[in-house]
Simulated scan of single mutants.
Amino acid sequence: MADKISKERRSANMSAIRSKHSKPEMQVRRLLHSLGYRFRLHRKDLPGKPDIVLPGRQAVIEVRGCFWHVHPDPKCKDARPPASNKGYWSSKLGRNVQRDAANLAALEALGWRVLVLWECEVASPDLAARLSHFLNPTG
């Protein structure tokens, strides 16, 4: 049986969740910077205000939370929906997935290359190589 949490406590928990400058995003930004890449953050003139934008390379990196953006990998333990209030969560998380797909399509239509990194992938030891390969596709 799930623990019952008061509405006030749940509200406090939810309001503490960041949409910008999250821990996984900060880790990716630090790594990019240490690799010598310079970038812009959350450009308002691009669809969805992408997390990391490298204008000179026409590249965007989105760092997505596994829970909030419904990571499709069945091995990801963070992507499981809550057991309670399933209708609410299904609807809410479904809208996030639809919005992500629309923003991705809009960015690609504008000529941007997009790399989606999931929260659970940020700790991967091959992340630096993956970022370098994405940002330097010809060599």
Rank of each mutant, 00 (worst) to 15 (best):
112 W>M: 07
72 P>W: 04
100 D>C: 08
109 A>V: 13
69 H>N: 09
19 S>W: 01
84 S>R: 11
31 L>T: 12
24 P>K: 12
82 P>A: 02
3 D>C: 05
49 K>I: 01
77 K>D: 10
90 S>I: 05
70 V>C: 04
86 K>P: 08
39 F>H: 06
81 P>T: 09
5 I>W: 12
4 K>M: 15
104 L>D: 15
55 P>G: 06
46 L>N: 03
7 K>C: 10
109 A>T: 15
96 N>P: 11
19 S>T: 13
86 K>H: 09
116 V>W: 03
77 K>T: 14
43 R>M: 10
74 P>A: 08
51 D>R: 09
78 D>G: 01
118 W>C: 12
28 V>A: 11
107 L>W: 00
73 D>N: 15
47 P>D: 06
25 E>N: 11
107 L>Y: 00
68 W>I: 09
68 W>L: 10
127 L>N: 09
131 L>S: 07
19 S>N: 12
45 D>M: 08
103 N>E: 10
86 K>S: 10
128 A>L: 05
111 G>A: 04
107 L>C: 12
51 D>E: 06
91 S>K: 15
16 A>T: 06
139 G>I: 03
30 R>Y: 01
14 M>W: 13
3 D>N: 10
40 R>W: 10
116 V>P: 11
95 R>S: 06
91 S>P: 01
70 V>S: 05
123 A>R: 13
25 E>P: 12
60 V>C: 02
89 W>A: 01
7 K>R: 15
133 H>Y: 06
62 E>S: 07
32 L>A: 04
102 A>W: 02
56 G>V: 00
118 W>R: 13
44 K>Q: 12
66 C>I: 13
117 L>T: 01
128 A>S: 15
16 A>R: 15
100 D>M: 14
35 L>G: 01
38 R>L: 05
54 L>E: 02
127 L>D: 04
130 R>F: 05
97 V>M: 07
125 P>F: 00
88 Y>I: 08
60 V>P: 05
118 W>G: 07
36 G>D: 07
81 P>I: 09
6 S>P: 14
41 L>T: 11
33 H>S: 07
110 L>D: 14
73 D>W: 01
102 A>T: 14
92 K>L: 02
48 G>A: 13
114 V>P: 00
34 S>C: 02
56 G>H: 11
133 H>V: 06
136 N>K: 08
13 N>R: 14
55 P>F: 15
16 A>G: 09
44 K>P: 00
95 R>W: 11
133 H>F: 05
92 K>G: 07
